[in-house]
């Protein structure tokens, strides 16, 4: 059970990254390569706030969310909006992710930094396994975000507009939805979310400048499993990836963890390339 808690909480982190990908994907059909790096920056900012400046947790959470939202806004303006071609967006957002990696390395160094968790790091026994508070918190948070976004997208006007945009951008435009503005706001919101969760992610994984690349890839695998645009799919994907990683590294050895995740990715792409929870659409000329 200890293993399961560990795996599930890792999976929750990946799911949260995938949720960020999804928000951007739904609103603008683009893929923000740098989203995982935004989460990483959130973890670093949280470290600075909590350890270096010794600020209260609530202030730090808000600070991290705001800081990363600003970074996301800048990213959208310089690396996404001016780019016309879809292929180039992959290159520019990858560039943004490398840039963030580099800035993080220069600012915070290459050593892993411990981000303290507000509810302590005393392990306790739950359902026959040892679990850390932050692990349970991450799992709960992933589920909560998915549920909240589900409700929001169906109940609020903005959410409905977003869904409309995802379905047909032009139709939404004709209906009076300011598509560009909405896409920008969604991008910034995804950034704020990344900053917000950064603190808790950092508590589990350490804040380290190589975090981004690993999170980006695992988050993508989660997305591939659940299907692009599917929020509940991220939870299933996260569970699968997290557990696979935990079990592989426990029973086969650490160097098999990534390999296990990679095999899942290959299998899913071969068997069901659109993901488990998205129906394949027919191509339109």
């Amino acid at each position: 059970m200890t293993l399961i808690w560990g795996g599930l909480s890792l999976g929750a982190i990946y799911a949260i990254v995938a949720i960020g990908y999804n928000i951007v994907f739904i609103s603008s059909k683009t893929f923000n390569f740098a989203h995982a790096q935004l989460t990483m920056v959130g973890a670093f900012v949280a470290y600075t706030g909590l350890v270096t400046w010794d600020l209260p947790v609530l202030v730090v959470v808000l600070m991290a969310a705001a800081a990363v939202a600003v970074i996301a806004a800048i990213e959208e303006r310089i690396a996404i909006r001016p780019v016309g071609d879809m292929h180039n967006i992959l290159v520019t957002t990858l560039g943004a992710s490398i840039l963030l990696d580099g800035i993080a390395q220069l600012t915070w160094g290459t050593q892993p930094l411990t981000v303290p968790f507000f509810a302590g790091d005393e392990a306790f026994t739950l359902l026959g396994g040892r679990a850390y508070p932050v692990e349970l918190f991450l799992i709960a948070m992933a589920v909560l975000i998915v549920v909240a976004l589900g409700i929001y997208s169906r109940r609020s006007l903005t959410g409905l507009a977003l869904l409309g945009m995802a379905e047909d951008r032009e139709a939404a435009l004709l209906r009076g939805v300011n598509v560009r503005r909405m896409a920008f706001m969604a991008f910034v919101a995804a950034g704020a979310l990344a900053g917000f969760v950064g603190m808790f992610v950092g508590s589990k994984t350490f804040a380290v400048s190589t975090l981004g690349a690993a999170l980006a890839l695992k988050g993508f695998v989660v997305l591939a499993i659940g299907g692009f645009g599917s929020m509940p799919g991220t939870l299933v994907g996260g569970t699968l990836v997290g557990l696979a990683e935990a079990y592989a590294s426990r029973y086969l050895g650490g160097e098999y963890a990534n390999l296990a995740v990679f095999l899942i990715l290959i299998t899913i792409l071969m068997v069901r390339p659109a993901g488990l929870f998205v129906r394949t659409k027919e191509r339109v000329v």
Partner: peptide, 29 residues
Amino acid sequence: GIPGLRLGSWSLAMTSFFLVLLLPDVIAI
């Protein structure tokens, strides 16, 4: 390439990027 190209642009980028992450592991194995 076979699995990576099934889903188009992002999936090839990611699948092939993953290889770079796997490399030290495979070498270690």
